[in-house]
């Protein structure tokens, strides 16, 4: 029979994590359903036509959509553990390492899954994230001393990465960075390549310093649990296959996009440089232990905060990464 499914995302389909719903997820589901006698009638609602960014979770809880992208980055209060990557700057810049670590933690730490299940969401390992964040400034940066007194725009959770560095963290977002850099409201931004390139930020802040704040977990493609549980086995399997295809396509698509973004940034006049290992270490050691503060706050709320922090650090080491600062060991 025919099943009605509405897919929701607050971001528009120019973003890879949305684009791959029609381009990878839906075709894979349709393909997996061939010959089962089930078909799906899809309604797609992206870019705020059903819910804004941060409203997808509510839309799914309300039954307005059955499958959707939930950005854990914008659900800090409902999916706190998923945001561990944003409180541990200077972790691995390798997206594969970070994504694998978080997916494994979803398998091994019950609280990780419980946070989704509590919101009536079925986690299907369709996590996605953002590549290694860097620093873009109007002035060259060789050492953190160069940041003294400079105003740096950063998304909310990344403002903490500037604590005690002498820089002034200004909470902002991508839509205003270009203008704010141009008028001098800010002197630089913490951002990731695939966002910086289309926003043409290199025209205003050409010094790109690869500080390697690390790759980030940002959310997942999930299904409404109570609805999913009611579906016939073939349909459940097809959705799983679809989410698998989505996650795979995301990983390979992201690498290509990041490479393209660096090219575009350099073409627009961007000058890319690496921050020295010693300076990175100095920066990391300058920060207060924001990760441990975060973990303790999660523990106090009855969640496995410390366990998640330890696991995230351990999994990166197990993958052969050298951690410049192990936030869990202080």
């Amino acid at each position: 029979d025919e099943i009605d499914i509405t897919t929701v995302a607050g971001h528009p389909p120019v973003f890879l994590w949305v684009k791959l719903i029609p381009e990878a997820f839906i075709p894979a589901v349709n393909k997996a359903l061939e010959g089962t006698g089930h078909t799906v009638s899809w309604t797609e609602a992206y870019g705020g036509t059903l819910a804004k960014v941060g409203g997808e979770l509510e839309a799914m809880e309300d039954g307005l959509a059955q499958i959707g992208v939930v950005s854990s980055l914008f659900e800090a209060s409902l999916l706190p553990l998923q945001n561990v990557t944003y409180v541990t700057p200077f972790h691995s810049p390798d997206t594969a390492v970070v994504f694998d670590a978080i997916e494994q933690m979803h398998e091994e730490i019950p609280d990780m899954r419980k946070l989704w299940a509590d919101k009536d969401l079925e986690y299907l390992s369709g996590g996605f994230g953002l590549e290694d964040y860097f620093l873009m400034t109007k002035f060259p940066v060789a050492s953190i001393d160069d940041l003294k007194g400079k105003k740096i725009g950063a998304p909310g959770p990344a403002v903490n990465w500037l604590k005690e560095t002498g820089a002034v963290g200004v909470s902002g977002n991508l839509t205003t960075y270009y203008n704010d850099l141009q008028t001098g409201v800010i002197d630089g931004v913490i951002v990731f390549p695939t966002a910086a390139a289309p926003a043409k930020l290199a025209e205003q802040a050409k010094y790109i310093t690869k500080v390697h704040f690390g790759a980030q977990y940002a959310g997942a493609l999930v299904a409404k649990k109570s609805w999913y549980d009611d579906q016939p086995k073939e349909v459940q399997d097809a959705i799983r296959a679809g989410v698998d295809a989505y996650a795979k396509a995301y990983r390979s698509g992201l690498d290509a996009r990041v490479a393209g973004a660096y090219k575009a940034l350099e073409a627009a006049g961007g000058e890319v440089s690496e921050m020295s290992e010693a300076e990175r270490k100095r920066w990391a050691d300058t920060l207060p232990n924001i990760a441990m503060d975060w973990a303790k706050a999660q523990d106090a709320a009855g969640l496995a905060g410390t366990e998640v922090l330890k696991a995230f650090m351990a999994k990166q080491e197990a993958a052969g990464e050298t951690l410049i600062r192990d936030w869990s060991k202080e």
Binding site: P12, V14, G47, N179, K200, E203
Partner: peptide
């Protein structure tokens, strides 16, 4: 005339440059 909220929205929807649109 820049700044414009609608032009920003257009830039976000189409992945084009906010600065050029302005």
């Amino acid at each position: 005339i820049p700044p414009s909220l609608l032009l920003i929205l257009f830039a976000v929807l189409t992945d084009s440059s906010i600065g050029e649109l302005f």
